[in-house]
Design a protein around this nucleic acid. Structure first.
Lengths: 221, 221
DNA sequence: TTAATAGTGTCTGTTAGACAGTATGGG
DNA sequence: CCCATACTGTCTAACAGACACTATTAA
């Protein structure tokens, strides 16, 4: 009886303008060698404390980045998803600011629109679709989209991020009330947005206690 | 290099009166032989189409029941959770009406209050706590609690189930508006609740298209 | 008729959101 | 001063929930 193949796969997401992109990497090994696919790899029992640590390791190795947000998505399994045999992929999704992803550009990496995925090896299309659905869903009632902004950001910038994810315009007054209600942001003292010929906006950052975590709204946006 | 141990564990939940109970089974094998724990077992690659099918098989074997609702919860992993070595448990949670669970009573099965879990083998306390938190959370905005009622039920019965899960009284008018908004229930023709000396209630059932699925509310209860 | 619970209409306080006003920078 | 965008106060409409009223059964 052949053992079950145990892997982790990660969906690394960022916002490039108003486009949600996912990072694919040219595969170094068979199967599907040199085809673009989600970054993933075998679990290393000798090295990994758990699957979360394995996902972190995979992303660190492929991108050199310590991602600010990484969460388990779901586990995909079965005999057909991997030609090597019956396999398990514990899938994670990670969010990061586009600037961070762009400056760590690796030759094997390509960014593609996460809403227009066509054919990919394994069941990676299904995994990406699941991750995007989860991100869009959680955006309705949590601080999740903050991880797609930089370390500091203005409320108008953040609102544009939410609007892009939710694909609908949001009311400015309500949006600010909801952000205040979550109580997860703090103003950055004496700092303002660089910008054009107009009033600068207050800069904010996630409070330290919420970095890596999420804060939920009782009622969504 | 020893292979990763691949298992599924299932959290079988039911409402006994106003008490949420989880089914534990006396273990047949080492480790923790004859200790009560979550029903689970190895994935059988030759037999299981995927981990979901394995969870269904485990529950069928232990209880003889085809559970009406089964959903993946999360995957737990690491070197310490199982004394046999580095392991993965793909955890599922299942809901069913208490009557169904009670009539399939097996000698190895015990039902314990899901809110008062103390020590259990492996990380089964963590898995149960995660399942209960998920159930309570999804109860706020979905049809999930319907699977704890029988095939047919009245709205007052269903409201009591929601109230038990959410641990707060609900407004009758609002509750009914929300149930209507989800549009997932249909009245059962010409049938009324058996009961006492009072007006009988209309019986409802989940529409066929929603059995095994969930319907979500845009804004919670 | 009474008791008991099912189901519904009405009113009220809260909240979401439209709108328009003020604030504050550069040109 | 003008323009553009940030922020905020006000008003209105929608919604949630309290309350009470009607409906329907058994005894």
């Amino acid at each position: 009886m052949r053992p079950v193949i145990c892997t982790v796969d990660t969906v690394l997401l960022a916002l490039r303008g108003d486009e949600l992109v996912v990072a694919l990497f040219k595969r170094e090994h068979e199967p599907y060698k040199s085809v673009a696919a989600l970054p993933g790899g075998y679990i290393h029992p000798a090295e990994d404390l758990d699957a979360y640590a394995a996902a972190h390791r995979v992303l660190r190795d492929k991108t050199g980045i310590e991602v600010p947000f990484l969460e388990q998505l779901a586990t995909f399994s079965g005999p057909a998803r991997d030609p090597r045999g019956w396999s398990i992929a514990i899938a994670y999704y990670a969010l990061l600011p586009y600037e961070l992803l762009a400056q760590a550009q690796k030759p094997a990496m390509t960014l593609i629109n996460a809403d227009r995925i066509h054919t990919l090896p394994f069941d990676h299309k299904l995994i990406i679709d699941t991750a995007v659905a989860r991100l869009r869903n959680k955006s309705q009632y949590s601080t999740l989209p903050c991880y797609l902004a930089g370390d500091t950001f203005t409320l108008p910038q953040l609102q544009r991020i939410y609007e892009t994810l939710m694909r609908e315009p949001l009311n400015k007054v309500s949006f600010r009330k909801k952000m205040a209600e979550m109580n997860a942001l703090e103003p950055v003292e004496d700092q303002m947005d660089t910008g054009g010929a107009h009033r600068p906006a207050q800069l904010y950052r996630l409070k330290a206690q919420f970095r890596g975590n999420l804060q939920m709204l009782r009622r969504g946006l």
